[in-house]
Amino acid sequence: MKRVDFNSLMALIFVGVLAALAYFFQDALKSNLRFILEGGFLEVFLVISVAVVVLSHSLKVNERDENSPLIFKSGFKPLDVFLTVGTYVAITSTACSLLEGAYIQQVFGVEYFTKFGELDINVLIGVSALLMWYVIFHMYKMLKELLFIPEEVSTLSDGASEKSALD
């Protein structure tokens, strides 16, 4: 008999509870989301997160790594950090503005984009979500690199050690 994966079960229950709450409290969810978007709280949170993560990452993590998530690598660290923060902030700001307008137009009928149809508005919501995912994913990678020390991989130098390690 197979064992149940506890983490997957908890994730399933969590998503189910969120879906039920969203279904039963649609109006409250819509108005709260509008408040968050119009108040600029999401944008401020993401911009502060970008600045803190990129600056902390640039101070602590060795930037000579080719897989580094910094966008720009000119060799002049302050310029690299400035351009990276600026790029992520621009992407975040654009995504939040597009999401705000598209969501409010789609859900509440307020016309933000006068020449856009319903399909265009839905595409804007998707593009905004994709842009935010891009920023959040890269911040997650930087934060992971910042907080978790990579494990050293030990190599075996001679065949005898390799043989005894395999036994």
Results as ranks from 00 to 15, higher is better:
residue 1 M to H: 05
residue 1 M to Y: 08
residue 2 K to R: 10
residue 2 K to S: 02
residue 3 R to C: 04
residue 8 S to C: 08
residue 9 L to Y: 00
residue 9 L to N: 10
residue 13 I to P: 09
residue 13 I to N: 13
residue 14 F to M: 13
residue 14 F to S: 15
residue 15 V to D: 03
residue 16 G to M: 03
residue 22 A to W: 07
residue 24 F to T: 01
residue 25 F to K: 01
residue 29 L to K: 09
residue 32 N to H: 06
residue 32 N to Q: 04
residue 34 R to S: 08
residue 35 F to H: 11
residue 38 E to T: 02
residue 40 G to F: 02
residue 43 E to L: 09
residue 46 L to D: 01
residue 49 S to P: 04
residue 50 V to N: 08
residue 51 A to G: 03
residue 52 V to A: 15
residue 52 V to H: 12
residue 55 L to K: 12
residue 59 L to W: 13
residue 63 E to K: 01
residue 66 E to Q: 14
residue 66 E to P: 07
residue 71 I to K: 06
residue 76 F to S: 06
residue 78 P to G: 01
residue 82 F to P: 10
residue 87 T to N: 03
residue 90 A to H: 00
residue 90 A to V: 04
residue 90 A to E: 00
residue 95 A to Y: 10
residue 97 S to L: 14
residue 98 L to R: 10
residue 99 L to E: 09
residue 104 I to H: 14
residue 112 Y to P: 12
residue 122 N to A: 15
residue 123 V to Q: 14
residue 125 I to Q: 14
residue 130 L to Y: 12
residue 132 M to S: 10
residue 135 V to G: 04
residue 138 H to L: 01
residue 144 K to D: 01
residue 144 K to E: 07
residue 145 E to L: 07
residue 147 L to Q: 08
residue 148 F to N: 02
residue 154 S to I: 06
residue 155 T to P: 00
residue 156 L to Y: 11
residue 161 S to P: 01
residue 161 S to H: 01
residue 163 K to L: 12
residue 163 K to R: 12
residue 164 S to R: 13
residue 167 D to I: 05
